[in-house]
């Protein structure tokens, strides 16, 4: 049941790689483990507990996570491998490093030494880590709504929500696959998310990117999608749409919304 295959070892390695990241924080964490094991006193009850939790516990969890047999055990229970890396959350990384740094500052006797050590530690943290809120990396993005959805995407979804009719199934590119049902649970989508696949590999996304209106309309008809959203890079003149029984009903700066005249619920 827990035989270790090559795949299990790969899962184990992948998890470790994800945990380590750039490596410097993990270096600080390993330092903190050594620190508590070396400097916490045996005859002080609290310090002994600190040694156990931030020293021995951390070491045991680290070793377990690196052990393919443990990997196999966990992935067998979970019946998937894609989330194994979360076992590294068992390690008290932040607490351990912060404790070590606090003790280092506290052990200085003079105020000036404490202040200097504090500044040095802040520099170490800045150099070792990566700033969370790099706005140019487009991970933390400013939008104009509290839903925290791209404004132009929200605009289209809200238009569809207010449109007449009970049956609504939307075909669109990645943002719409992600955000539509977060905003309106009554608007359906054509494909279910497979967590092992990227959205860009979904057939609707590749068909839209292909830019062939006949293929797009065939897809929508076979999946009973009565709404279609296309980005401004994939546009069709109104007269071209006439032959496909579809009309543009709304557009904003980034997207155009189309509705099929005669698609009904399947």
């Amino acid at each position: 049941m827990f035989e270790v295959s090559k795949k299990t070892v790969e899962v184990c390695q992948e998890a470790f790689t994800r945990f380590v990241g750039t490596g410097l924080y993990i270096g600080l964490f390993l330092m903190s483990i050594l620190y508590v094991i070396s400097f916490m006193k045996k005859n002080d009850r609290k310090q002994r507990k600190i040694k156990i939790i931030f020293g021995f516990y951390s070491i045991i969890i680290f070793i377990l996570n690196l052990c393919p047999v443990f990997t196999k055990f966990i992935t067998t229970i979970l019946r998937e491998t894609s989330t194994y890396w979360r076992v590294y959350w068992l390690l008290p990384l932040g607490i351990s490093i912060a404790f070590m740094f606090t003790e280092m500052i506290d052990h200085k006797e003079k105020k000036l030494e404490k202040a200097f050590t504090f500044v040095l530690i802040i520099c170490v943290i800045i150099i070792s880590g990566t700033y969370m809120y790099h706005l140019d990396k487009k991970e933390f993005i400013k939008v104009g709504n509290y839903y925290k959805v791209p404004d132009s995407v929200l605009d289209i979804i809200e238009y569809i929500s207010k449109d007449e009719g009970d049956f609504k199934r939307l075909a669109g590119s990645e943002p719409f696959l992600v955000y539509t049902r977060q905003i309106d649970g009554n608007i359906m989508l054509p494909e279910a998310r497979d967590v092992s696949a990227e959205y860009k590999d979904w057939s609707i996304v590749s068909i839209i990117k292909g830019g062939n209106l006949k293929d797009i309309c065939d897809y929508c008809r076979s999946n009973s999608c009565n709404y279609l959203v296309l980005g401004k890079l994939v546009q069709f003149p109104d007269e071209y749409l006439l032959g496909y029984d579809i009309k543009k009903i709304y557009e904003n700066d980034d997207y155009s919304l189309y509705k099929f005249n005669r698609i009904v619920e399947d």
């Binding site: 994800r18 990241g21 490596g23 924080y25 932040g94 607490i95 070792s128 969370m132």
Partner: peptide, 14 residues
């Protein structure tokens, strides 16, 4: 110190 570790803690997206 812990807050600092969090603010600069994007060494891995995981």
């Amino acid at each position: 110190i812990l807050s600092g570790l969090y603010i600069f803690g994007k060494y891995s997206r995981y």
